[in-house]
Nucleic acid binder design. Sequence first.
DNA 1: GTCTGTAATTTAATCGATTAACTTCTGGTC
DNA 2: GACCAGAAGTTAATCGATTAAATTACAGAC
Lengths: 344, 344
Amino acid sequence: MATIKEIAALSGVSVATVSHVLSGKKNVSDAARDRVLRAIELTNYKPNAIAKSLRMNKTHIIGVLVEDIRGLPVPEIVDGINQQLEESGYQVLLSNLRLLHKLYNQYEQLSQHTHVINSGIALLEDARVDGIIYVAMHDRRVDGVRQPVNIPFVFAFAQSGEPESVSVTYDNENSAYEITRLLIGQNHRQIALIAGHAYSSAAHLRLAGYRRAMDEAGLRVPPEYIRWGDWEYHSGVEQADAMLSLAVPPTAIFAMNDPMAAGCYASIMRHGLRIPEDVSVVGFDNQEVASCLFPGLTTVALPNREIGHIATERLLDRLEGRTAEPASITLPCSIVRRGSTMQR
Amino acid sequence: MATIKEIAALSGVSVATVSHVLSGKKNVSDAARDRVLRAIELTNYKPNAIAKSLRMNKTHIIGVLVEDIRGLPVPEIVDGINQQLEESGYQVLLSNLRLLHKLYNQYEQLSQHTHVINSGIALLEDARVDGIIYVAMHDRRVDGVRQPVNIPFVFAFAQSGEPESVSVTYDNENSAYEITRLLIGQNHRQIALIAGHAYSSAAHLRLAGYRRAMDEAGLRVPPEYIRWGDWEYHSGVEQADAMLSLAVPPTAIFAMNDPMAAGCYASIMRHGLRIPEDVSVVGFDNQEVASCLFPGLTTVALPNREIGHIATERLLDRLEGRTAEPASITLPCSIVRRGSTMQR
DNA sequence: GTCTGTAATTTAATCGATTAACTTCTGGTC
DNA sequence: GACCAGAAGTTAATCGATTAAATTACAGAC
C-alpha cells in the first residue's frame, strides 16, 4: 500500500504538500495539486488511518458495549446507532460481553457481572476509542460500572442512577399504565398481570404502571391476579393456566412481554376459550412473535432505534465539543394495536 | 495517560528496557524489572495500541461486515464470531450496511447492492483491519464483491461462487429434503410447499430439496401445491388460504420459514381446522416464534453460531500463518421437533 | 534596485510504541 | 592479564501521518 512519502516522491513535492492537498487547509498551487492528485489516483493511495490516529490522538471509533448482541432490543439499538453515525466518519467497535451465556440467570452474582462489564470497558479504553455507548439491559447492573475518566460515556436502554452520567432510556412505568388504561377503556374490570422476573427493575416499573392505572380507575386488584413469571413462554402458559382456573377468572391478561403473552394464547386455547372474545391479551416489547400470532397481539413497542439515535447524538455532541449537560432522557413507547383485545 | 517514556523516566531505565519487560523477549535484570513493573502499577500504564499497530502493521481488529444487523441469523452469527474470538486478542469492528433499510425489496438493483457492499469493504480496509468476515444473506449478492488483495476474507452464511474464496454456509437443499422426509415418514402424501421469495437462491435450494424427497418417495406434486410467498407472515396466510380451499387440500404444509408457517397456523385456525390433527405444519429457520406458537412449530434450526465459529477459525488460521486452502464449507442443519406434525 | 508582503513549499519535530545494532559490564578460562 | 561469551542496557531508526516554523519565490511599491 502506498504511503504519503511515495506520493510525495511520485509527484515531486514534499510530504507536507501532499498533506496540505489532502486537508485543504493550506494553499497549494494548482500545478502541484494536480500532480499530487494524479499520483494519488494512480497508486490508489489511502492515508493510513492508524498513523493519523496516533498523531491526532483521535481514532474516530466509538465503542459499543453490549451485554449480549442477541438480546431482544440490542440489534435494533445498534442499528439506530449506526444510522445516526452515518456520514459522521465514526466507526463502531463492538464489544459483545456475552453475559447471557456466561452468567445467565445468576442474578445474585452482581459483582461478577460488574467485573465482566468493567473489563469490557477497559478493553475499549485500551483500543483508544473516542467514546463509549453502553447498551445496558438492567438498571441494577449499571451501578457498579466504572466510567473511564477521559472518554465520553453514554448509557442506553437501562438507566444509571449516578447524577453525573447521561442515560437514554424508555418509559416502562407509563407504558404499562397506558396499556392497562386501554383495557380499562374497553370496559375490562378483571385485569390480571403476568409479571417478568422479580429481579428485573423493568418488571417492577411495569407493575407500578399497572397498579397506578388500576388505582386511578378505582379497580381493586386481588392478589391472585398478579403472578410472577420469568419472561419465558412457558411461564406465560403456567401462570395463565393458574389464573383461568380461578373462581373469577380475568377477562383480560396483561403479560409483561410477548413470549409470555404467547404462552397465554396457548393456555387460553387449551381451555377452549377464544381470543379476544372470551379473554383479551396484551403483551409488551413488540417482538416479532406479536405479529405472527393469531389474532395479532396488541403490545407496547419500545423506541429502540430512537434510543440508539439519541444516545449517539449525545455522544457526538460531546465528541465534537458541543456542550451537553449530563441528563437522563426517557423516551415514550407506543402501543401497537392488533386484534387481541376487544370491548367487553 | 502515561506513555512508555514516562515509565522509563520513572523507573530510571530506557524505553527499550520497558519494552523488553513488557514483551518478555529479552533479558532484563530482576531489579530493573521490578522498578518498571512498579512504575506501571503506579501510573496505571497501558501501552498505546494505536502506536503498536502503526509500528507492527497489525491492528488485531477484524472487520465484520453485515448487510443488516437485525437480519434473523445475524446476531447469532456475530455472537459465534465473538465466542471464537475470545482470548484471541482480536476485537471486532462492526460495519452494518443497513441494506434492508436502503434497498429493501429492490431485488433488481443488484449493482446498487454491490456498490454499497464494496464501499463497506473499502471502509474496513481504510481502518486497516487484519481480516474481514462478510456475513452475506444472499448468494447472488456475493458475486460482484471485490475482495481486498492483502486482507484475508471469509464469506459466512451465503456462499461465494469464486473458486479462490472461502465461504462457510449451511445445507439448504438437504435440510429441506430431511424435513420433507419427516412428513413423508409420518405417512403424509399431500404435502404442499409455501416457498420464499422467488429472487432468493435459498428458496430455490429448499425447493430442490423438497422436490428430491417427493420424487424419491414417488409422490407426484401437483402444481397448485407449490405457491410462492415473500417470507412474510401475511403471504403465509394467503397461500395457506388458497391451498386449503383446494378440492384436495394438503394434509401437511411445509413453509420455507417460520413467519409464513405462523401464517399457516392463522389460516388453518380460521378454517376451523386443528394443528396437527387436521393439518401438519413445518417451518424453517427456528426463529423465536417457532417456540411461541401453539402447538410448538417443528422446524429446521440453522447452525448460525457454528457458522460464526468456523468462519472465524478459518480467518484466524490465515491471520496466524497457519495454512488453510480456500474451501467452501457447508454445515448441516438440525430439525427441531415440536408438536406441529403428527402421524397420518 | 531594494524592500516588503504574501503565497507556496519544505524542513523537521512529533505522536508512542518496537527492535536491530551497539555499548558496557561481569565473570570465567587459559 | 588477555581474551571471550553472554547478560543487561542504551541508542537511534522506524512505522505514516500532521503541522509549526522556516525558507523560498515572486509580484508590486517606491
